[in-house]
């Protein structure tokens, strides 16, 4: 499953970050690295971009880019993301 398919309020663990170049590096730099827990908080009014919660902060990315992030869905989707994995 990829991150753009996750419904708001649900989350998962990052398996891989695909794509290339500046975008991919930026995603990695912002902490979207494999094994990180990420929760989709909401979708923007026009349906795109989406708001994520990870590593204790909020990040916004576009759906096209979220489609490059592979996710393993987890049962616990309380929406709380703490420090650590």
């Amino acid at each position: 499953m990829t991150l753009d398919q996750i419904k708001p309020g649900k989350g998962g663990i990052i398996v891989a970050v695909n794509g290339e170049g500046a975008l991919r590096r930026r995603l990695l730099d912002m902490g979207l690295t494999p094994k990180t827990k990420v929760v989709v908080k909401k979708t923007a009014p026009m349906g795109d971009p989406i708001e994520l919660s990870l590593r204790g902060y909020m990040l916004s990315i576009r759906k096209d880019d979220a489609a490059k992030i592979e996710i393993e869905v987890i049962a616990d989707d309380s929406g709380v993301v703490g420090i650590g994995r």
Binding site: A22, L23, R26, L27, M30, P49, E51, Y57, M58, L59, S60, I61, R62, D65
Partner: peptide, 11 residues
């Protein structure tokens, strides 16, 4: 080409 990705913190 050099489009800067939209990966933005919501502070």
């Amino acid at each position: 080409g050099d489009c800067v990705p939209f990966v933005m913190e919501l502070p």
